[in-house]
Design a protein around this nucleic acid. Structure first.
Lengths: 140, 140
DNA sequence: TTGCGTGCAAAGGTTTTGCATGGCA
DNA sequence: TGCCATGCAAAACCTTTGCACGCAA
């Protein structure tokens, strides 16, 4: 939920677009492009500022995939917060660059282990695993 | 091992410095500063270009820790490559920012699981976990 | 009217690139 | 001598910030 005092047209537009993207990921530029030719283009600064709010909020997750490429965002819904609803890995293939969403119970195991044995609270939503995806592995 | 055709003074200096840092991490700027006041300052471009080679090589690991801050490098030795010698996690605390090196067998389990059940080859050296470290967890 | 949100342009910082020079084999 | 490495400066890139204006309450 947006904690903005003022609710603006831009906020509504952005949120509507984000809901469409549910399950996939996007960059600030993707958002920019999506609105660029519409009747209501959004300024770059606005996009970044609104996304930042949503990230703090937990409505949107921000990933840093590559060193120099743009940050990646994912809409996870307005009620996300502390629930375990969408416990999934993100795996970035170092070869083809694809970002995989993978549901897997091993994540819970690891999370539990880190908590119990090392006192560390893992944040699966922000963690990105690197490796070679199955597709690229086959090609070798 | 450096695959450069020509071995230069700069390469030797860099590698010597990296060996001193073994076990910790550094940025390109750290390297720059270290040599800045010496008899042999290194150009920024040279540092980045040499580090890149070492990364491809496997001698150095490159991490993308924070969104806007500089990339983090870690020297892991010239013979690292495919061996399992230093299977350790990297965990970045989202609160205090510390980068933790953690040896843990759970990593192997996860790696094995991803390989066998999902066909994915995890690269633990490049993966950075995000969460809250034990110290910060206590303070709450 | 008040004050935040917007958007343009400029700044910010890290990394890359172009090009002339330097140094190893 | 040939060819890569170097290093300076400039470019490139994503993101943030300053500031005037607009709009919601």
């Amino acid at each position: 939920m947006i904690k903005s005092v003022y609710k603006t047209r831009q906020q509504d537009l952005l949120l509507a677009f984000l809901k469409e993207t549910k399950g996939s990921h996007f960059t600030a530029e993707d958002v920019k492009k999506h609105f660029a030719l519409s009747d209501n283009p959004l300024g770059t600064a606005t996009i970044y500022r609104q996304l930042e709010k949503l990230v703090i909020d937990g409505t949107v997750i921000k990933y840093f995939i590559d060193e120099k490429s743009a940050a990646c965002f994912e809409y996870v819904g307005e009620k996300h917060g502390e629930t375990d609803e969408s416990k999934h890995f993100h795996i970035k293939c170092e070869k083809c660059g694809v970002l995989i969403h993978l549901d897997c119970s091993e994540l819970s195991h690891l999370q539990k282990h880190l908590k119990e044995h090392h006192g560390i609270s893992l944040n699966p939503l922000r963690t990105v695993f690197y490796g070679i995806c199955a597709e690229c592995e086959k090609k070798n």
